[in-house]
Nucleic acid binder design. Structure first.
Length: 578
DNA sequence: GCCGTTTTCGGCCCGACTGTTTTCAGTCG
C-alpha cells in the first residue's frame, strides 16, 4: 500500500459520494483528506497501519479509521460497498470534459449510461440533449471529448513509458545471449507521446532472447511472436515490440527502427545517389554499381559518416533540415541534461505543491543544481491555493532567510524568489508592479478563460509578456497532452513579442505539458528568444521532469547557449535581471 | 466529515465561463 493508493481511494470515495448526492462538505472532507495524505511529511502509510494518526489536521475519526483499515488490510469495506452501487466503468465518465458529478449522475440515473460507450450512443440518439440541463451544445461538446479520447486511446505520455522502457532494457541487457540492446522508435526520437515502444537487440540466439522478452511478469498479452520479432502488451495497454538482429546488423537496424520514416527515406535516397541501397539490415552495393564495397558498420555514426554526414542525434531525425545541416557540418551541439545548472518555476506547499520550500531546496541540491526558482501560484488561482500579496512577501522573507543559511553554511546554492503570476483575462497581471518589483523573477501563465478567440488570447498574452516585471512566459499553449488541446493562440506572434521584449519562453517539462511545443523552438531560436527548461515541479520527485525537458529541448534544436538555466549561478542573475 | 469552539452544532473556499435558461446550475481552474 502506497501513499498514492491511500489518497486515490479517498478521492474515489469523494467522487462516489458526489454521485450519490451526499453532503458536499462531506465530499470535501474526503478530498482534503486525500490531499492531506499526499502532503504529509513522514511515513503516513506506516502510521496508518499501526493506527497512529492522531493529531493530523483533517484526519479525525472516520477518515483515520478508514486509512487504518486500508493500510493494515489492503482493503476498505466502506469503499467496496460504495463501489458496488455503481457500474465499474462509471469513473471513466469523469474523464469527459464538461461532465462533472451532477451530470454523470443525471445521465446514469435517467438513461442508465454506465460507460463512455453508452454515453456516446445516448448522445448520438439525442437522448442526452433531451435531458433537463443538457442541450445541443452540451451533446456536441461531450461527443468532441469522446472523439478526442478515442483518437488518443492508444497513445501514452512519456512519464507513462519511461519506467517500463528502463525496466525492459535492463532485463534485455542482463540476458546472457544479448550483446546489445537499445530502445528505438519515437521514444528514442523524443516525441512527446508515443503509440508503442520499439526495442532492438543484437544476438546470435534470437529465439532465446524473444522467449525471455515475452515471458516477463509485466507482459499481459503476447500479440505476436516469431523467430526474430515479437509484440506484447503491458498491463497499461502499452504495446512493446522487439526485433532481434545480428551484431553486424545492429547499427543499420537501430537507424532504421529509430526513424522517422521520412528521415529514413531521405537517407536511402542519399545512399542510392552514391550507388548503395540501405535497408533495415545493411548498406549494400546497388546492382551494377562500381562504388567501393561498403564496410560493416558498428555504430550509426560510422554509417552517417560513410554517407558524408555528421551523426544526427535521434531527436532531430524528423526530416526537417537535419540532413542538410549534417552534410554541411552545421548540426547544432544540442543541450544536455547535464548542462543544466538550476531551474525555475517550481511550487511548494505554500500553493498547490506537495513538498515544502526546504524540501524542494534540499532535493535541488541533491540533484547537483546551483539554484532553484520558486514560483508558486498567485491569488487568482484560488483552486491552487494561490498566494496573496501578504503570503507572497512572507515567502520572499523565508527564502531570504534560507539563502542566508546556505551562505552561512558555505553551501553554494540560491533560491530565487518568484511567482507564477496569473495572466488575467485582459492581459493584466495578478500582482501590482510594486509587488513584482520585490521578486527576483516572475513567470506569467494563463490558467483561466481559455476559450477566448485566437486574436483575444494572443493580445492577452502579448500584453503580459510585454510587462517589464515579467521574466518568462509559462506553458504557452495550456495544452495537457492526451487530455486537452492547446487553446487558440498565435504562437508565432507571441514569439515575436517575446523577441521584442526580451522575455524568456519556458519549456515546461511536466510530461503533461511539454509546452512550448518542440516544433516552435527553431523559430524562437532564430528570433533570439531564450528558453528556460522548467520542471513545474509540485513535488521533490518532479524535479526529475528536467529529463523530459532536456529531451524536448534537443528535439527543438536548442543548444546550451539557447537555454538560460545552463548558466551557472553568478551569470544567470544577469539574464533574469536580479 | 471536520473545525472551532459560543463544548453542540452551524459553517465549511472563489470567480469566470458555459449553456441552458430568462436567473442559475454545473464545471473548471
Amino acid at each position: 500500500m502506497t501513499r498514492e493508493a491511500l489518497a486515490d481511494t479517498l478521492e474515489q470515495i469523494a467522487l462516489l459520494l458526489e454521485l450519490k448526492g451526499e453532503n458536499p462538505f462531506k465530499v470535501r472532507a474526503y478530498k482534503t483528506g486525500a490531499e492531506t495524505v499526499l502532503q504529509f511529511t513522514g511515513d503516513i502509510v506506516g502510521r496508518a497501519r499501526v493506527n497512529d494518526l492522531s493529531g493530523i489536521k483533517g484526519l479525525v475519526d472516520a477518515l483515520r479509521q478508514k486509512l487504518h483499515e486500508l493500510a493494515s488490510t489492503g482493503k476498505l469495506e466502506y469503499y467496496e460497498n460504495l463501489k458496488s452501487e455503481f457500474p465499474a466503468d462509471i469513473f471513466d465518465l469523469f474523464q469527459i470534459q464538461g461532465l462533472g458529478p451532477k451530470k454523470v449522475k443525471a445521465v446514469y440515473e435517467a438513461l442508465g449510461v454506465a460507460s463512455v460507450t453508452d454515453l456516446k450512443e445516448a448522445c448520438q440518439s439525442g437522448a442526452v440533449a433531451a435531458l433537463p440541463g443538457f442541450g445541443k451544445k452540451s451533446t456536441e461538446k461531450i461527443l468532441q471529448s469522446i472523439a478526442f479520447r478515442e483518437q488518443n486511446a492508444d497513445r501514452f505520455r512519456l512519464d507513462e513509458v519511461v519506467g517500463p522502457v528502463e525496466l525492459i532494457l535492463e532485463s534485455l541487457r542482463s540476458h546472457p545471449d544479448c550483446s546489445m540492446a537499445e530502445v528505438a522508435g519515437s521514444f528514442r526520437r523524443g516525441k512527446e507521446t508515443v503509440h508503442d515502444v520499439d526495442f532492438l537487440v543484437a544476438t546470435s540466439q534470437p529465439e532465446s532472447v524473444i522467449d525471455h522478452f515475452v515471458n516477463q511478469e509485466w507482459v499481459s498479452q503476447i500479440i505476436a511472436r516469431g523467430d526474430t520479432k515479437a509484440s506484447v502488451n503491458l498491463q497499461s495497454g502499452l504495446q512493446c515490440d522487439l526485433r532481434a538482429v545480428s551484431t553486424d546488423e545492429f547499427a543499420c537496424s537501430l537507424l532504421y527502427f529509430t526513424g522517422s520514416k521520412e528521415h529514413n527515406v531521405a537517407l536511402r535516397g542519399r545512399a542510392n545517389d552514391r550507388g548503395y541501397t540501405l535497408n533495415e539490415y545493411r548498406l549494400s552495393l546497388q546492382e551494377g554499381s562500381d562504388s567501393a564495397d561498403p564496410p560493416v558498420f558498428e555504430t550509426e555514426t560510422e554509417l552517417y559518416h560513410f554517407l558524408g554526414l555528421g551523426f544526427v542525434p535521434p531527436e532531430l531525425r524528423e526530416n526537417s533540415g537535419e540532413l542538410e545541416a549534417a552534410e554541411k557540418g552545421n548540426l547544432p551541439r544540442l543541450v544536455e541534461l547535464e548542462n543544466l545548472r538550476g531551474t525555475f518555476h517550481n511550487h511548494t506547499t505554500a500553493s498547490d505543491g506537495r513538498s515544502s520550500l526546504e524540501e524542494m531546496a534540499e532535493a535541488a541540491i541533491e540533484l547537483g543544481l546551483q539554484y532553484l526558482g520558486i514560483a508558486d501560484h498567485s491569488k487568482s488561482s484560488f483552486q491552487a491555493n494561490g498566494l496573496n500579496e501578504k503570503r507572497l512577501l512572507a515567502q520572499v522573507k523565508e527564502i531570504e532567510k534560507l539563502n542566508r543559511k546556505f551562505a552561512d553554511e558555505g553551501t553554494s546554492f540560491k533560491i530565487f524568489a518568484g511567482s507564477e503570476v496569473d495572466i488575467l483575462k485582459d492581459g493584466s497581471l495578478d500582482f501590482s508592479d510594486e509587488i513584482l518589483d520585490q521578486l527576483d523573477y516572475a513567470v506569467a501563465s494563463v490558467h483561466n478563460a481559455m476559450t477566448l478567440s485566437e486574436a483575444d488570447m494572443t493580445r492577452r498574452i502579448i500584453r503580459a509578456v510585454s510587462h517589464p516585471g515579467i521574466t518568462m512566459l509559462g506553458h504557452l499553449t495550456g495544452r495537457l497532452l492526451l487530455k486537452r488541446n492547446a487553446y487558440a493562440v498565435d504562437v508565432a506572434a507571441v514569439i515575436d513579442a517575446c523577441a521584442a521584449t526580451g522575455t524568456i519562453i519556458e519549456l515546461n517539462c511536466s510530461p503533461w505539458r511539454l509546452d512550448m511545443d518542440w516544433r516552435w523552438w527553431p523559430l524562437a531560436k532564430e528570433k533570439g528568444v531564450k528558453c528556460s527548461i522548467n520542471p513545474d515541479a509540485h513535488h521533490v520527485d518532479q524535479l526529475k521532469n528536467l529529463w523530459f525537458g532536456a529531451k524536448l529541448a534537443r528535439k527543438g534544436w536548442l543548444t546550451r547557449e539557447d537555454v538560460i538555466n545552463t548558466l551557472p549561478l553568478g551569470e544567470v542573475e544577469g539574464v533574469i535581471g536580479v
